[in-house]
């Protein structure tokens, strides 16, 4: 298997606190032929500032894309929010020469230039479309047998479809397909599947944000799922780290294991559990009965 090089775009939340995502993708993707390259000089993608100043978002996204262009590498963007922001910036600057010129004028200060040639992937399409299920299957040594998992896609990974999302907006199934390849038995549909985790309200209405999380998790718990799989550091922060608090908002005792897709991928590929950050999950992941080797 020939290896493919990708520059990693960590974003803000993953490299400053959601370490389980970063640890598990760094430990598992190389086994599937993905070489991750760390770039210096990166910053926030700007998406969280879109409410404050959209030009700032465009500038920050273009700035990071320009840094990837310098290396001539595609960007692997594990955070769906960053992925959306970078992608939307590409589309806007493609259609808008005046804005493109203005952004490039500003980028000169740091010796950067943006042309918009950087290809982007998120975890979902990297695994499903770039690597492919056949290759993944060949590398599974420790299948996730018997696990009835629910997938929480979050919003930015699937909407809006016109902005090149990694999976379908109304019936996403790629993560379920990946989980089946890893040996699990995903629950492919449930009524709250397309609902938000609540995280975008954190800066402004933290209590309401938690209520949103609580409502969704309560519904999933009633389905009888073994656990929830996510692909976004923001969603994970809500579903995993804040689960107990979220439960209080709906007067429910929530007790659901929440794991990153890349953590389960690592387990199925035979990576030592120690290297996948499971000690950092605050939800009861022990209930999944994961073992490092078969």
């Amino acid at each position: 298997m020939s290896s493919q090089r990708y520059a990693l775009f960590p974003g803000c939340l993953m490299p400053t606190e959601q370490y389980a995502y970063e640890l598990s993708l760094r430990a598992s993707l190389p086994l599937l032929g993905i070489d991750l390259v760390d770039l210096p000089g990166l910053s926030c993608c700007g998406e969280p500032m879109k409410s404050v100043n959209q030009t700032l978002t465009l500038y920050l996204s273009a700035r990071n894309l320009a840094l990837a262009e310098q290396q001539g590498l595609p960007f692997y963007v594990p955070c769906p929010q960053c992925h959306l922001s970078l992608h939307e910036t590409n589309l806007i600057l493609q259609k808008n020469p005046a804005m493109l010129e203005r952004i490039n004028e500003m980028l000169k200060a740091e010796g950067l230039h943006y042309t918009g040639t950087t290809r982007l992937v998120h975890t979902i399409d990297l695994l499903y479309d770039t690597i492919g299920l056949d290759i993944i299957k060949k590398h599974v040594t420790n299948p996730l047998t018997g696990m009835k998992l629910v997938v929480h896609y979050g919003c930015h990974a699937i909407r809006p479809k016109e902005l090149g999302r990694p999976d379908d907006s109304e019936n996403p199934q790629k993560v379920e397909a990946i989980l089946k390849t890893l040996g699990a038995e995903p629950i492919t549909h449930y009524p709250q599947k397309l609902d938000c985790c609540g995280a975008p309200l954190l800066p402004n209405k933290p209590e309401t944000a938690l209520a949103k999380t609580g409502q969704k998790l309560q519904a999933i718990q009633e389905l009888g799922a073994s656990g929830v799989v996510d692909v976004c550091p923001w969603c994970h922060k809500m579903l995993d780290s804040r689960q107990t608090k979220a439960g209080e908002t709906v007067a429910a005792k929530l007790d659901l294991p929440i794991v990153y897709l890349t953590q389960l991928l690592g387990v199925a590929l035979g990576v030592d559990k120690e290297k996948l950050g499971f000690t950092l999950n605050l939800s009861p992941v022990h209930k999944l009965g994961l073992r490092s080797q078969p």
């Binding site: 409410s51 930015h156 909407r159 907006s169 938000c196 609540g198 975008p200 309200l201 402004n204």
Partner: peptide, 11 residues
């Protein structure tokens, strides 16, 4: 300021 940016409206 209460929009959750779920993008369902745009979709």
């Amino acid at each position: 300021w209460t929009c959750m940016t779920c993008m369902k409206c745009r979709e």
